[in-house]
């Protein structure tokens, strides 16, 4: 932290010096306070458990410090999917306007925590300018999808002309539980650009955060936990794709998977395993998340199903 550089109690320090000459020199170089290390946890059902496996992986930050992040296992995915399934129906049943308000509220909370996101993005290698840009774009993107919650159904549904005496109309329903394998290169914006449209459409999700840029995802989880998003709607895990990708793709209780990848073997694995329960698989690679075209309602449409109803008339 920036505000801990000057020692507050010089008198106390002097006493230490007088008593123990051996350690005195070391302490004089900075604050004698021991920095409190944060335990980075995963986010399942509105709570912050450690990974069930008890494992972690170290991440070296740009200031030279090392943090430990949970190396989630397939059982964490299982627990997260149970939570997401439990939450899905209730989340989908909320009015579009209410979902709008909740997403907007999340954006408000992110705005007040923006300095932390900016700091963490820098710790993960971004320049200050890039970090500010990414954080601000991410918040704006959330606001953008908040606006769509109660509008997308109007533009993606239709009344269809049919040549029989039926009133025929199509409306949208959420796909269900979606696993998201978020962009590796863009820890905050890449995650929010995918997560926001998924939940705006009434789905719930289990996110595997970027492995090398995971701090933003953990902090986002902390913001979500104190926002109005119900428990289980968003679940965030940290870990490796190599280990978890198969389980995110083959889980029978998952209705769709989003994979951000340009690696042939990952794409093949997800496509093959998704076929098991005919999961919807949306696979893409976005090289620049800042582009305006990455902000569009069709991202909501990717995770909705169309239900068409034939209603007899004139009988």
């Amino acid at each position: 932290m920036a505000n801990t550089s000057t020692p507050k109690k010089p008198t106390a320090k002097k006493t230490v010096v007088a008593q123990n000459n051996g350690q005195a020199e070391k302490k004089q170089t900075g604050s004698s306070r021991i920095k409190v290390q944060k335990t980075y946890k995963i986010f399942i059902n509105g709570q912050f458990p450690r990974t069930e496996s008890g494992r972690y992986y170290p991440l070296t930050l740009s200031d030279g410090s090392i943090v430990n992040l949970c190396l989630s296992s397939r059982k964490d995915i299982r627990n997260a999917v149970v939570a997401a399934r439990e939450a899905q129906e209730k989340w989908a049943a909320r009015a579009g306007l209410n979902k709008s308000q909740i997403l907007y509220r999340l954006a408000e909370m992110l705005e007040t925590r923006s300095s932390q996101f900016i700091e963490e993005l820098q710790l993960m290698g971004a320049t200050k300018e890039a970090a500010i840009n990414e954080t601000e774009t991410a918040i704006d993107r959330l606001i953008y999808y908040a606006g769509w919650c109660d509008k997308f159904n109007a533009i993606f549904s239709s009344v269809n002309p049919v040549s029989s005496s039926h009133f025929n109309f199509s409306s949208n329903e959420p796909t269900g539980v979606v696993t998201i394998v978020a962009a590796e290169e863009s820890g905050l914006l890449g995650l929010i650009s995918v997560m926001a449209p998924v939940i705006a459409g009434g789905n719930t999700c289990v996110v595997l955060a970027s492995e090398s840029k995971a701090l933003s995802a953990v902090t986002l989880a902390e913001v979500i936990a104190t926002s109005d998003i119900p428990a289980g709607v968003v679940n965030i895990l940290t870990g490796t794709r190599k280990e978890l990708l198969a389980h995110m793709a083959n889980h029978m209780d998952v209705n769709a998977i989003y994979l951000h990848s340009n690696k042939a073997e990952e794409i093949k694995e997800v496509e093959t395993l998704s076929a098991l329960n005919v999961k919807r698989a949306r696979i893409e690679f976005v090289s620049n998340w800042f582009e305006p075209k990455e902000e569009n309602p069709y991202r909501i449409q990717d995770f909705i199903e169309v239900k068409t109803t034939w209603h007899p008339i004139g009988i």
Partner: peptide, 8 residues
């Protein structure tokens, strides 16, 4: 080896 769904 695959987690199941109540749907089935």
């Amino acid at each position: 080896g695959v987690y199941q769904s109540l749907n089935y």
